[in-house]
């Protein structure tokens, strides 16, 4: 089953990178959102898959039954999901503000930090 998910992970990465390479701000943002999912799935799959047996300990047991899902990647991903969401929101607001200020959603048009015709550097001391 890992093989199928590896293929899916490849598809997630390919999609997100294709969108990231766009000059369109909103596509880049969507690409970032998908990238988060791609990485989470990558982590999840590399911790091996277990069908439908969550990592819980029975009421009367002290350790989980053998064959439960791997809890460690889950713990890592859980926080990652929330963090990638908050970053996605931040990027969204940032992109939105940039669009408002600069009047363009084309990353090529956003040249405040690196203007097209930069003055030559000062030659004095």
């Amino acid at each position: 089953m890992e093989t199928a998910l590896a293929g899916l992970v490849a598809a997630f990465f390919a999609t997100s990178i294709y969108l990231l390479l766009s000059r369109h701000l909103i596509r880049v943002l969507i690409g970032v959102a998908i990238l988060g999912n791609a990485v989470n799935l990558l982590l999840f799959t590399s911790g091996r898959l277990t069908r439908e047996v969550p990592a819980f300990i029975g009421l009367d047991e002290m350790v989980p039954a053998p064959g439960v899902a791997n809890a460690l990647p889950q713990a890592l991903i859980l926080t990652a999901i929330v963090i990638s969401f908050s970053f996605f929101a931040f990027l969204l607001v940032l992109g939105y503000r940039a669009y408002q200020e600069l009047g363009t959603d084309d990353t090529n048009g956003m040249r405040i930090a690196e203007p097209r015709s930069e003055p030559p550097p000062p030659m004095g001391y």
Binding site: L5, A38, L42, T45
Partner: peptide, 13 residues
């Protein structure tokens, strides 16, 4: 994109 995707997929595999 596809090369990167394939790279990640193969690494995972």
């Amino acid at each position: 994109a596809i090369t990167c995707g394939a790279g990640f997929g193969l690494i995972l595999l």
